[in-house]
């Protein structure tokens, strides 16, 4: 059975008229790295909240259908149990950082403290997680004294340290520098290869295509299409629906019209573009 199982999930926030998610069916296997793409307002963050149990437990509202992670039905669980399996890194790290800790080190230990991890185990786990995301040098800084991108790394690390079975990431690299972004994608890929299941909302198509196993395209709260990264990210359907595409894809699409791109398939990554454009 799939590790994540969303069955006909429809969800409406309190006081809103239209559902944010409509009839979502999604199965994700253990250790799979799935990227969610879509224009603003497509329901990407709501889907993250649903996987993380915030919908409906925190946000309330009306939900129908079933949400299962690791064989547990979300409606029959509680947030304090849910967090043992599922970790969510927020879109805006400012909203995630606890405000209760003076240093980055303590901030990253916060989740472990709250789930009762013994002190002796905590320290090496925090150190290991900081090493993984390359922020050991920030250990003694205040989380609030950091730049946006550094704060985002701290937010991500404070989830990784919990070793969730399912890692949910809402645009985790939006404020990161370009090479840092690529590195973080690499770290996440490695986590997936180690058996962690990853669902990640992102706009950076080039890196999705390089690192993710599968792409789900959302629009207006519904799944527009899903499949292999190259197949989804080069689809005409995405262009028609206002999705962003990589410059390799858009340029090759234009080149094709002018007879300068001969292949059937359009590229998403640098390697695919080089392969198709080289003489």
């Amino acid at each position: 059975m799939a590790f994540i199982n969303l069955n006909n999930v429809t969800y409406k926030y309190p006081l809103t008229k239209t559902p944010a998610l409509q009839n979502i069916n999604l199965q994700v296997n253990e250790g799979e790295f799935v990227a969610i793409v879509g224009p603003n307002g497509a329901g990407k963050s709501t889907l993250c909240y649903t996987l993380a149990g915030f919908v409906p437990h925190f946000f309330k509202g009306e939900i129908s259908g079933t949400v299962e992670v690791a064989g547990i039905d979300s409606s029959k669980s509680t947030l304090d149990k849910w967090v043992l399996n599922v970790g969510l890194a927020f879109q805006n790290p400012f909203n995630q950082i606890s405000g209760a800790k003076y240093t980055v080190f303590e901030e990253i230990a916060f989740g472990l403290e709250n789930t009762g991890v013994p002190r002796d185990e905590m320290k090496p786990r925090v150190e290991e997680a900081m090493k993984l995301t390359d922020i050991s040098n920030l250990a003694d800084r205040s989380p609030y004294s950091l730049s946006g991108g550094q704060q985002q790394r701290v937010a991500l690390t404070s989830i990784l340290v919990m070793r969730p079975k399912l890692l949910v990431l809402d645009e985790p690299t939006s404020q990161m520098d370009p090479i840092g972004t690529r590195e973080v994608f690499g770290v996440i890929r490695k986590m997936a290869e180690g058996g962690m299941t990853v669902v990640m909302v992102e706009h950076k198509m080039e890196w999705i295509a390089n690192f993710a196993d599968r792409v789900v395209a959302l629009k207006d709260g519904q799944v527009l299409m899903e499949g292999k990264p190259n197949e989804v990210l080069t689809s005409e359907l995405l262009v028609e629906n206002g999705f962003g595409v990589s410059r390799y894809t858009s340029t090759a699409r234009e080149a094709k019209k002018q007879g300068l791109w001969k292949k059937e398939k359009l590229p998403v990554t640098l390697d695919e573009a080089v392969e198709g454009f080289k003489k």
Binding site: D177, S250, T251, V274, F277
Partner: peptide, 24 residues
């Protein structure tokens, strides 16, 4: 400083273009 050149600049370079290209 952890910055990659733009996608099309990288592509042009890989294809052996002499000029640095910035856009489509």
């Amino acid at each position: 400083t952890f910055v990659d050149p733009p996608q099309l600049t990288r592509l042009g370079k890989k294809l052996g273009f002499k000029e640095t290209v910035r856009n489509q």
